[in-house]
């Protein structure tokens, strides 16, 4: 995957499926091209789910913004495959405490799932856009 891929979607929950499918496809192309260690299906699922969660998170916080958009960029580098999800919402805190399942919580899983599936996550704020950068490495350090 030589060039970056960029997708811009309206901040509408209906497009969650598109966001996750694009992410899954990008991961599959990358995984086959680079030959990752470990299970390719798992790698693609991790990407598909993480981008889906991030997109849903952006849509949820877009609430009343009429023309809110969510842009997802994919690129590859030495660290692996990276997805950058950015939106026009107000600032949010990407670090969430792990959900305490004993309380049967119905929410609060989204960002936690991303933290578990991706190898590195970073959040920044530029030109009043939230930028969430997630990377999954092709060769995670073995135990």
């Amino acid at each position: 995957m030589k060039h970056a891929i960029s997708v811009t979607l309206n901040a509408d929950i209906v497009y969650t499926r598109i966001a996750s499918q694009v992410a899954g496809a990008a991961a599959e192309v990358y995984a086959n091209e680079v030959g990752i260690t470990g299970n390719i299906a798992e790698f693609c699922h991790a990407f598909e789910l993480s981008v889906s969660e991030s997109f849903t998170n952006s849509v949820r916080h877009a609430n009343h913004q009429a023309d809110g958009d969510v842009t997802i960029n994919f690129f590859t580098d030495a660290n692996g495959l990276t997805a950058v999800v950015s939106d026009t919402n107000p600032e949010f805190n990407p670090v969430t405490p792990p959900p305490d399942v004993t309380l049967y919580p119905e929410g609060g899983y989204g960002l936690f799932i991303i933290h578990k599936l991706m190898d590195s996550i970073s959040y920044s704020r530029k030109k009043d856009r939230n930028i969430l950068t997630m990377t999954k490495s092709a060769h995670p350090p073995a135990i």
Binding site: E53, T56, Y104, P105, E106, G107, Y109, G110
Partner: peptide, 14 residues
């Protein structure tokens, strides 16, 4: 395909 929202509903049922 199941995401955090789907999981949340199942946990609600539980």
């Amino acid at each position: 395909f199941l995401d955090s929202s789907g999981l949340g509903i199942l946990v609600g049922i539980a």
